[in-house]
Design a protein around this nucleic acid. Structure first.
Length: 298
DNA sequence: AACCCGGGGAG
DNA sequence: CTCCCAGGGTT
């Protein structure tokens, strides 16, 4: 199909079906948009929305977040996952205060120089907060373009240069239209062109879709996809430890943490537990409180 | 390029 | 149970 038809139909569909998300409201600040994007890195919208509201109410500006106790930031992040994102968001706020007079800079290059902001988030903020053209390529847009243009069931495990170039060619030249296309293509991927069971009967470009026309060929990259385990992994142990530290109102004894982790992995493995806790300290997610207690950072 | 990093809900 | 999710940083 032509890019023009894909863009025109998808944006028209978006005007009718866009979700009323709080970070899409005109009154939302660029900082609010950035906070939403960081929270949405690997966490679904339904889980982010309440946390985002609490967070922005408590710390509405970079300056406010910069001054917050890191332990409180981690508690407010709660169970959103990947708590290093919360740490980086506060680092980002402090960098904005120190280097940009407390105002989130414009332009993808300046944004990418900030902690926790990569290619996707810089493009997203540029489009959604600043209303300027950028090539927003998240997992939703990659899937939509892969299916409609290239008849691919799912995007490759890693973003390719060719993919970025193709997405650039699709994005409208006009700033406002490009920003609208970015939001619309993400929304189509999130609501209709979903990974597991696409709702082609509700899709505005179904009759133009290359994947559909080709008879829904299977995922060519299926064999290369990694199955991320969970039970017994370091990530589970780290997450359980962080939960203990968040919910406690004082530093937690290492023996209590060991008991919790032992329950998860089945038997007591002091070497492994020590390594997990040391990793949390190294990452700045936890600090030693005395010789045998661990707590959240100040 | 490969690997690491959480957690919950849908199917 | 498996799979997925508005990715980024480090090595």
């Amino acid at each position: 199909m032509t890019s023009a038809a894909l863009v025109a139909r998808t944006t028209a569909w978006f005007d009718l079906h866009a979700r009323a998300l709080p970070w899409r409201e005109p009154a939302c600040t660029p900082w609010g948009v950035l906070v939403s994007e960081v929270m949405l890195q690997q966490t679904p919208v339904v889980r982010v929305e309440p946390r985002w509201r609490d967070w922005l109410t408590r710390w509405p500006t970079p300056a406010a977040l910069a001054e917050a106790p890191t332990g409180e930031v981690l508690r407010a992040w709660g169970g959103l996952g990947y708590p290093r994102r919360a740490l980086r968001l506060q680092e980002c706020a402090r960098a904005v205060v120190a280097e940009h007079d407390g105002v989130l800079p414009r332009g993808e290059e300046a944004l990418r120089a900030l902690p926790g902001i990569g290619a996707y988030t810089a493009a997203a903020v540029t489009a959604f907060a600043h209303g300027r053209r950028s090539v927003v390529l998240d997992t939703n847009v990659r899937r939509v373009l892969g299916r409609t243009l290239r008849a691919e069931a799912l995007p490759s495990p890693h973003l390719t240069v060719a993919e970025t170039r193709a997405a650039d060619a699709v994005a409208p030249a006009d700033d406002a239209e490009a920003a609208r296309w970015a939001a619309a293509s993400m929304e189509l991927g999130a609501l209709v062109c979903t990974a597991r069971s696409p709702r082609c009967d509700a899709c505005p470009v179904a009759d133009l879709c290359a994947w559909r026309a080709a008879g829904y060929p299977a995922d060519a990259h299926a064999a290369r996809r990694r199955v991320q385990g969970w039970a017994g992994t370091d990530r589970q142990l780290r997450g359980a430890t962080m939960r203990l530290l968040r919910e406690a109102h004082a530093p937690v004894a290492r023996t209590d943490i060991e008991a919790r982790l032992t329950a998860l992995i089945g038997d007591f493995d002091p070497v492994r537990v020590d390594a997990v806790l040391a990793g949390l300290v190294t990452d700045g997610l936890a600090v030693a409180a005395g010789p045998d207690h661990l707590g959240l950072p100040a």
